[in-house]
Amino acid sequence: MTLNLFYFLSFLGVLSALLVVFSKNPVHSVLYLIITFFVIAAHYVLLNAQFLAIVHIIVYAGAIMVLFLYVIMLLNLNQEAEPHKTNLIRFAATISSGLLLIILVGSLKGTDQMIAQTSSPVEVGLVKSLGRVLFKEFLLPFEISSVLLLAAMVGAVMLGKPDHIKK
């Protein structure tokens, strides 16, 4: 049952991810991307990580994708207004996404050993166990990532106030 569900969700995830890339209309792309995020959240539920699943939906589907949709609707992109891409840009995009693919494949290489390490899969996704792990074992990386987010926020505020910088 769980395995069939996993295959179904994976199929749905890959299909919607492909549709993100292949659909002509940018708004449709964003909507397919939202479906992809929901499928990923469903995968989290399959792994007993309900908290991660719902946070994933709130943050990605509920906030980030709304802003994506917001910007794309405001720009009102269509095929006539599409910016012209030179061959150099296409070449650079191909190389950089190829490099990303190599990194992803490389990071998947060591997963065989990782499965043996997870001990109690039922408890792993609950808020309490997640909080304990975050604030005990991974406190430093957690705080550093929050500083990173703060820096990004300050940067965005500075960019949003151009006349303030001139003075």
Binding site: F51, I54, I57, I58, A61, G62, A63, V66
Partner: peptide
């Protein structure tokens, strides 16, 4: 959080 998720959608 479920309520928040649904509201945000």
């Amino acid at each position: 959080l479920y309520v928040f998720g649904v509201v945000s959608i």
